[in-house]
Amino acid sequence: MLNVPFNKPYQTGKELEYIQDAIARGHISGNGHYTKRCQNFFEQSYHIRKCLLTNSCTDALEMAALLCNIEPGDEVIMPSFTFVSTANAFVLRGAKIVFVDSRPDHPNMDESRIEELITPKTKAIVVVHYGGFACEMELIMEIAQRHALLVIEDAAQAIDSLYLGKALGSIGHLSCFSFHETKNIQAGEAGLLGINDPELIRRAEILWEKGTDRAAFFRGEIDKYGWVDLGSSFLPSEVTAAFLWAQLENLEKIQSRRKAIWDSYFELFEKGSTKGFSEEYQNAFQEAGETSKILHQADETRANAHLFYLLFQNEPARAQFAASLKSQGILAVFHYQSLHKSEYARNHFPDQYARHLPNADRFSDCLLRLPLYFELVER
């Protein structure tokens, strides 16, 4: 019996060495040697103006909501097909969420439906790059500029993805990344806030440092620091940062491997080739595949090999395929359930609950993700 999990966090072999080094340096509470290395990596590699490491992508999103000055009654536009943290961060500040349907051909938000949802109460657009596939940022930024709105890129799954030659996370006013253990680059649980609007940098540092101007103090810009704004304990420890640095140092190697696995899946399902998989693994997918028709394969040209998904004709066909794989020791999993159809939306945003967003619901019912992790493919 095969035993193929959906995900297996990869370790480079340097994580413990760097953690020990962080401890030896005598500063493990955060914003030390390894935190700065991780932040500099994103700023230099992806041309993000300022980066701040956080405990999670959820933390980064909550910082973004604070930086947008979200207040009760403000409206924030975002896709329905996304993780709950995308919405929670803004709901916590009192926002009303206005959901956008997915595109007919992809789980990303339908950019053509954004402008019709803008009202005088709209304050921000939250863009989610599903699976590392880029939304049409040029159009979204044009819409935002016309209506004086802030754009937040939820790039939780989008490290190392590009849009027209620009790194995702470097285009919107703010961006948020995840280093959860299911991501390409992981530290168990961690995140990062990217700030591309220079007017937001100083306040972002204050929020990050529990509402104090401590960062400016340590740079020698002021002679003492105190409480000057809202904030929270968003900084991860140097232990987390050291682990993450071992991953970032091996980004090219990790990405190369994941892309090879992605390509092997593509060959198998789109072209019928068995290149890249062990014989047992090939047979498992071929036998399971006889029970279901694969309708769609995402365009691979712009993404970062974060995930590989298949789209089925209906929910029973998906369940049959997943059950067949599971019987052979292979775990394939569903993904998001449409937020506009959630219990929370029904109770708090009944007008959104009543909306018809067929594409988001279709991806909720019919999308299935296959295992994809560094050690998966047998050559």
Rank of each mutant, 00 (worst) to 15 (best):
A124I: 01
V151H: 12
A156K: 09
T122E: 14
R113G: 01
V151P: 00
R146N: 11
T119H: 08
E138H: 06
V126W: 02
G131K: 08
P120M: 11
I152K: 06
H147D: 04
I140F: 11
K121A: 15
E142Y: 10
E115P: 05
G132N: 09
P120V: 01
G131M: 08
L139Q: 13
F133H: 14
A134G: 03
R146H: 03
K123D: 03
E116N: 04
E136S: 07
G169T: 05
M109A: 11
L117W: 07
L150D: 03
S112W: 14
A134T: 02
Y130G: 00
S161C: 12
D160R: 04
S161T: 07
I159F: 11
I114W: 13
L149T: 02
I143L: 09
D110N: 15
A155S: 14
G131I: 04
G131W: 13
Q157R: 12
E115R: 12
T122Q: 14
L149D: 04
L150Y: 13
L139T: 06
Q157N: 11
A167L: 03
H129G: 02
L162A: 07
L162H: 12
G169V: 07
A134D: 03
L117E: 13
Q157D: 15
G131C: 09
V151L: 12
L117F: 05
I125E: 06
E138D: 13
V151I: 06
L164Q: 15
A167F: 11
G131T: 05
A167T: 06
I143Q: 07
H129E: 12
L139I: 03
G169H: 13
I114N: 08
A155M: 09
A124M: 08
M137I: 02
V126P: 04
Y163C: 03
V151N: 08
I140L: 09
T122Y: 14
T122A: 12
D160A: 11
T119Q: 15
E153T: 01
S112A: 12
L149K: 10
S161M: 05
A156Y: 08
T119P: 10
V126K: 08
Q145I: 00
E153K: 07
Y163E: 05
L149V: 02
Q157Y: 08
F133P: 00
G165T: 02
L150N: 06
M109W: 08
K166N: 14
V126S: 11
I125L: 14
A144P: 00
V126F: 03
G131Y: 11
G165V: 01
M141G: 01
R146P: 15
M109C: 06
I114K: 10
I125N: 09
Y163T: 01
D160V: 00
H129F: 10
G132V: 01
A134W: 11
L149E: 03
Y130C: 06
H129D: 09
A158C: 06
I152W: 12
I118L: 13
V126Y: 04
